[in-house]
């Protein structure tokens, strides 16, 4: 099970590749032969299972393309869930 996951708002992406360059597990790439509404090849995840939810991609992204989730370290008891 992946430790993290990213949701990509493709139409915000300008295909700059900054996220690709910083992903520590190298699972981001720019799409090939596919373009978003802006005409850029958007970023996509090649291997979601490897995502650690480190948010490096979101931290360097100039265009707020990413929303990032990370698996909770210690699952909370159901009663404590908000």
């Amino acid at each position: 099970m992946a430790k993290g996951m990213v949701i990509i708002d493709e139409d915000r992406c300008k295909g700059c590749g900054l996220c690709v360059s910083v992903c520590p597990v190298n699972i981001l790439r720019l799409a090939e032969g596919r373009f978003n509404a802006k005409g850029y090849p958007p970023v996509e995840v090649s291997d979601p299972e490897k995502c650690t939810g480190c948010a490096s991609c979101a931290i360097i992204c100039p265009d707020v393309v990413f929303t990032v989730y990370r698996r909770k370290r210690q699952p909370q008891p159901a009663t404590a869930a908000a």
Binding site: G4, M5, D11, R12, K14, G15, C16, G17, L18, K38, Y40, G53, A55, A58, I59, P62, D63, V64, F66, T67, V68, Y69, R70, R71, K72
Partner: peptide, 21 residues
């Protein structure tokens, strides 16, 4: 899964006019 990063409230949802990168 818990949310660790999302667009801050102090930014609008507008796409910027800045160049890629």
């Amino acid at each position: 899964m818990e949310l660790v990063y999302q667009r801050p409230e102090s930014l609008t949802p507008a796409h910027t006019h800045y160049c890629p990168g």
